[in-house]
Computed example of a mutant assay.
Amino acid sequence: VKEEVELALKKHLANMKRNSEKEVHFPESRSLQLQFLNNLSLPVFTGARIEGDDSTIKVALVDTLTGQIVTSGPESSAKVEIVVLEGDFDGDESDNWTIEEFKNNIVREREGKKPLLTGDAFLTLKEGIGSVGEISFTDNSSWTRSRRFRLGARVVDNTDETRVREAKTDSFIVRDHRGELYKKHHPPVLFDEVWRLEKIGKDGAFHKRLSRESINTVKDFLTLLVLDPSRLRHILGTGMSTKMWEVTVEHARTCVLDKRVYLYCPPGTQQKSGVVFNVVGQVMGLLSECQYVPIDKLSETQKAYFPYHIRSFVSCLLFSYIIFLLCL
């Protein structure tokens, strides 16, 4: 009987402890915030769709205490608005801000202009994640105090008392669409027009100088850079500083060359020996009795063989006496 009493007493005390813990247990508070899941694809131009760096822009609702996306509850299907913010809107040192501070940094269109954002600026979260629709800017960012914009995201029609902190992207510049027509290519490709290179403006002085010498593409530029760099430098003239020249040449050299090669065979070799060049005239190696030797494997004596044949090769280019091979 004593043992039964002690067992019953233990159960009673355990139940009291559990009930006591329930009474003093407070529900965990949540700290909710919208977040952009990916960065914007730059550069951004007026009239062009604003996209993420890998896909469409995605927004998520996150519990900042756990770092997890909120996939259930009324907030997980909230309606979200995308707005334009001042580029210098940072919040305080802990990247915090009030609702009013966020509202005060929303950028509106200039007087007499169309709404700054056009397209579908609203989205609905599904299990805490939503994709931004097709939106674009109608105006550039040059007239704002920082000359930059940010995108912001905020919950609309929030009937719950829980504060959902807004999201913002990094700041970025929005340029007029006409600038896209003149932008440089990184990296350039062989048949890009030569003004796609850095420091050579479309229809500018350097572009005109090059055009007069029939240097119209990046391939033309690279070919002369390999075969006669001093002539190329002379064509561009003293208006192009040494620093500008270095920037242009460095950019041109980032061009990805294709696998085409040329073989120049001196007269009398029956195409068994010759010099192998790439598509821009750079020496790749030597063909000796039908055996290809890369340039880094050649002796100094063999390398001394090149200058004469390079000149012969250029002459043959002029008169179209080149044997063209694919992927030697």
Rank of each mutant, 00 (worst) to 15 (best):
K2R: 11
E3L: 09
E4C: 06
E6R: 13
L7P: 04
L9K: 07
K11S: 07
M16R: 07
M16L: 10
R18L: 09
N19Y: 08
E21S: 10
E21L: 14
H25I: 06
F26H: 11
E28R: 12
S29N: 08
S29C: 10
Q33W: 15
Q35C: 03
F36T: 00
F36W: 03
N39L: 01
L40A: 00
S41I: 02
T46M: 01
G47I: 01
I50Y: 01
D53K: 01
D54G: 05
S55F: 03
T56C: 05
K58W: 00
L61D: 00
V62S: 11
D63W: 01
L65M: 10
T66L: 11
G67Y: 05
T71M: 11
S72T: 08
S76Q: 04
V80D: 02
V83E: 03
E86M: 09
F89V: 03
D95Q: 13
I106Q: 09
I106S: 03
I106C: 06
E109M: 08
G112N: 04
L117T: 01
T118Y: 03
L125P: 10
S131C: 01
S136P: 06
T138L: 08
T138S: 15
D139K: 01
N140W: 02
S141W: 03
R148V: 10
F149V: 04
F149E: 01
L151R: 00
V155Y: 03
N158G: 08
E161H: 07
T162V: 15
R165G: 07
H177I: 12
H177L: 14
H177G: 14
G179K: 14
L181H: 03
Y182K: 05
H185R: 11
F191V: 13
F191R: 15
D192F: 11
D192V: 13
R209C: 09
S211C: 10
I215V: 15
I215N: 05
N216K: 15
T217P: 09
F221L: 13
L222W: 14
L227I: 03
L227C: 06
D228E: 14
S230C: 08
L232K: 07
H234G: 04
L236Q: 04
A252Y: 06
R253P: 08
V256D: 11
L257W: 08
R260A: 02
Y262E: 13
Y264A: 06
Y264P: 06
P267A: 12
P267T: 08
P267W: 06
S273P: 11
S273C: 11
V276T: 06
G281Y: 02
M284Y: 07
M284E: 13
L287F: 04
E289M: 15
E300H: 11
P307H: 14
P307D: 15
H309L: 12
L318S: 10
Y321V: 05
Y321W: 02
I322G: 07
F324S: 15
L325G: 13
L328W: 11
L328V: 15
